[in-house]
Computed example of a mutant assay.
Amino acid sequence: MTVLDRRRLLIGGAVAGAGALAAACTSNSPAESKNTADQRTQSPASPGKHVTIGFTAPAANHGWTAAISENAKTQAGRYSDVTLKATEGTNDVNQQIQQVQTMIDAKVGALVILPFDGKALTEIAKKAMAAGIPVVNLDREFADPLAYRTLIKGDNHGMGVSAGNFIAKQMAAKNVSKPVIVEVAGLDNLQLTQDRSAGFKAALAAHGLSVTARQAADFTAETGQKVTSALLQANKKIDALWNHDDDQGIGVLAAIRQASRDKEFLMVGGAGSRNAMTAIKADNTPLKATVLYSPSMAASAISLARLLGQGRGLTDMVEHEVPAQVTTYSAVVTKDNVDDYMVVGFA
């Protein structure tokens, strides 16, 4: 069974209904109580009440954001009781606000929103919630918890921790006591970049290590190559490098090859692209691992929105309702386990 299959089992297939709990508690009608109990015990893999789910996300101008939309559409297609109304991806905040307003006007059963700007989309998401439409906030958080029913996100701080712990372990195995560790970050004005760097720094510090040099790029291969070239010129010896983003990592690897330093140190990537996993499996580049920030969370968001729209919950949990927050785990993918994770690698 693949990792994605296991995830679907937990979120989409081993999920069962718990909704309409309030009705069961407040109604004196035996018929209503029986219907509620039946709904709670119904397997979510079987068809339930039809739900129209609205979906909006940023433009697919990056491998990860493109995979977000792809995962959402694929997951929705697995359910006979779901109709997905997916909007065209946009990085225009006003356009995305209008997209959400249109879906509110259409009275969709649930909304999945990955906001281009969480703060800017907060009020329109609160409006959806006030209209009785449960909102699943995907990854980039709104400024107010009242703007969503459930938040599902990646763990940016955890990414840094996982990368730092892996590098520290590798340095100890190589008996390198004072390694030169460099970091190629993403956009520094983004909270996610700051969180990743903070986690990386904290994990290294726990092992008595630190970052020797750090520069930020902007999540593109071009800037990744430019920044890495500068770091290589400034540091004549490097033991390990962490790059925050695998798309950016294409340029990082190009710079390393261009400098003929591809045998000198190990590299760890971030996010989990299929390209990175293929390189890790081949084991013929400095890239020895990548830390997951998987866009498969979008598929889980659709499953959660379906359950919210149907008034169901998660059978494997004692609580009857869908949880208020889900944070994915930042697993480290190496050549030893890459085959297990290849299915969630994005193009």
Score class of each variant (00 low, 15 high):
A128H: 07
T212S: 08
A221C: 08
Q194Y: 03
A198T: 13
Q233S: 15
S229G: 15
L209P: 02
Y148E: 08
L187E: 12
K153Q: 15
K226Y: 11
Q194E: 12
V180C: 13
K226T: 15
T150Y: 12
L231Q: 03
G208T: 10
L138S: 01
R149N: 15
V180E: 15
F142H: 12
A203E: 04
A230R: 12
A221I: 05
G158Y: 03
E123G: 03
A216K: 02
T220R: 04
M171G: 06
A216G: 14
F166D: 00
V211M: 13
G199Y: 00
G164H: 03
I124R: 06
Q194M: 01
Q194F: 01
Q215T: 01
R149F: 09
A173S: 12
K126L: 05
M171N: 11
G199H: 00
A216Y: 13
E222C: 02
I167C: 11
V184I: 13
T228P: 04
I152C: 02
A173N: 15
A128Y: 11
E222Y: 05
F219C: 08
S229W: 04
A206S: 10
K174S: 13
P179A: 07
H207F: 09
G186T: 08
V176Q: 05
R214V: 09
A128W: 12
L187T: 12
V211T: 09
